[in-house]
């Protein structure tokens, strides 16, 4: 995984709570056997007026002009701002794949669903949790200032807006390290292979009915 770098990005406000992973990437696109190419179908049912199917060229599909990401001012946004319980529902990692493929590098919300939150870190996306008041304030600012952007600095755990206002955010240190260093988790776990084997042997001795298919 690539290392997470400080960046400055346009903020897109998705003023809704409980956005589920079915909305982020509808089920028909989960039929892909690859990790890439989900960006054009991110929020498909909200973004387009017609029904999308996998394998379709999205460039000529009719756009829902009311959907926030279709508005010119939010083109090329890389920070998504949204309400509580973002990413609830299915465990599909296709959701962070689609968000990353579209170009989002950070998502700011009041809260995230557990599995989605976890999946973000495996894909270089930084989920940031802020208080309801701060989210409200940011949504208002984003809507009233065309081109509103935030500088996202994970090292220092800060968000800085175009006017120089700075906000701190909290994040667990191991999550921060994993993103900053682009850690390869499987390799890391395999470095403890001996310990795993020792555990496994004694585990099987204690529970000899396991490990049968």
């Amino acid at each position: 995984m690539e290392k997470f770098q400080t960046f400055t990005g346009i903020v897109a406000p998705l003023d809704r709570a409980n956005i589920d992973t079915d909305a982020i990437i509808p089920k028909q696109f989960l039929k892909s056997i690859h990790r890439t190419g989900f960006g054009p179908n991110l929020f498909d049912e909200w973004r387009y007026l017609d029904h999308g199917e996998p394998g379709q060229d999205c460039t000529n599909r009719p756009l829902n002009q009311n959907f926030v990401l279709n508005q010119d001012r939010y083109k090329n946004s890389s920070v998504l701002l949204t309400r509580e319980n973002f990413g609830c529902g299915s465990s599909r990692e296709h959701a962070p794949w689609a968000l990353a493929d579209y170009g989002f590098k950070a998502i700011i919300s009041e809260s995230f669903a557990d599995i989605f939150y976890n999946n973000c870190f495996k894909n270089g996306i930084l989920p940031i949790t802020l208080s309801t008041e701060k989210i409200q304030h940011l949504i208002e600012k984003t809507e009233s200032n065309i081109g509103f952007s935030l500088k996202v600095d994970l090292e220092n755990q800060t968000l800085t807006d175009s006017f120089g206002n700075m906000t701190f955010f909290e994040i667990e240190s191991f999550r921060k390290d994993a993103l900053l260093n682009g850690l390869e988790e499987i390799g890391l776990t395999l470095s403890h292979a001996e310990e795993i084997k020792i555990f496994e042997t004694s585990h099987l001795q204690k529970h000899p009915w396991l490990f049968r298919t």
């Binding site: 962070p96 976890n118 999946n119 776990t189 395999l190």
Partner: peptide, 15 residues
Amino acid sequence: GIGTSEVEHVLSTQC
């Protein structure tokens, strides 16, 4: 429930 990266993690490490 886990994501696909974790499915791979379990396939490869059982952890």
